[in-house]
């Protein structure tokens, strides 16, 4: 469970989120306009953004957690691969997800390597394991990023616009995997992709004007129009 208590945060002295109090007990999909503060909300949970107030994960104040412990409770899947050394292999890249479990100053263990093989197999990536990260397609890259997060064995997984760079077919594949992961993990999804949000079928948290709130009738055309200011019709055609 994630809880925020009177959390405010600013960027360049301007408040982005103000006095947010919120409890996220289960899966959640976070939506909102560009610049509404979705990414900031995620940065807060990952400990990447300074803030006022209290943020707790399962009752524990994240300000008190070490970076290693935080990595064991939250994994983050970015929208795209940000990487300097593209020669690293898929297997070595996924293994990096095990850092928090590795003994300090020592090499990754056999257990770590076994876990990597497990997640690669789970996501049908085994035959790609020796390919370099630079040689992958966008869809494959997104899968590998998910694999790395799974290797982290955290209870919470945050997906930050996972379909932003994908075609419909790959979006569907990623969507299916995310939906499956809801069984074992608390999935926090940030997206602009209404089809995906509808398919994932988690409670909707809408970010607007420095505030957040749960939306109940989000996918009703009238409600969508009220929130986004543009007309919608027949959204549910998306994924079968």
């Amino acid at each position: 469970m994630i809880s925020l208590e009177k959390v405010s945060t600013a960027y360049k002295k301007e408040n982005i989120l103000q006095d947010i109090s919120l409890e996220i007990t289960t899966h959640v999909s976070i939506l909102g306009e560009n610049g509404a503060g979705k990414s900031t909300l995620v940065k807060l949970l990952c400990g990447l953004q300074p803030y006022k107030g209290k943020i707790r994960i399962d009752g524990q104040d994240i300000a008190q957690l070490s970076l290693l412990d935080l990595a064991k409770s939250i994994a983050y899947v970015p929208a795209q691969l940000e990487i300097y050394d593209v020669t690293i292999s898929v297997e070595a890249f996924v293994l990096l997800g095990r850092f928090a479990y590795k003994e300090r100053f020592f090499a990754y263990s056999q257990d770590d390597r076994k876990k990597v093989q497990e997640v690669l197999a789970l996501l049908n990536l085994t035959q790609l394991s020796q390919h370099t990260m630079g040689s992958l397609s966008s869809g494959q890259t997104q899968l590998v990023l998910i694999a790395q997060a799974l290797a982290q064995e955290s209870k919470i997984i945050i997906f930050d616009e996972p379909t932003a760079n994908l075609d419909p077919k790959n979006s569907k594949i990623i969507g299916n995997h995310i939906k499956e992961l809801k069984q074992k993990h608390q999935v926090v999804l940030i997206t602009h992709d209404l089809h995906l949000a509808h398919f994932i079928d988690s409670p909707i948290l809408f970010v607007q004007e420095k505030q957040v709130r749960f939306e109940t009738d989000f996918f009703q055309a009238e409600r969508l129009q009220a929130l986004y200011g543009v007309a919608f019709d027949n959204l549910a055609v998306a994924y079968a």
Binding site: L48, A71, P78
Partner: peptide, 14 residues
């Protein structure tokens, strides 16, 4: 880990 990216390294506990 830091050769991947600074943010990703922090999120893995570095």
């Amino acid at each position: 880990l830091m050769s991947i990216s600074d943010t990703s390294a922090r999120l893995k506990g570095v």
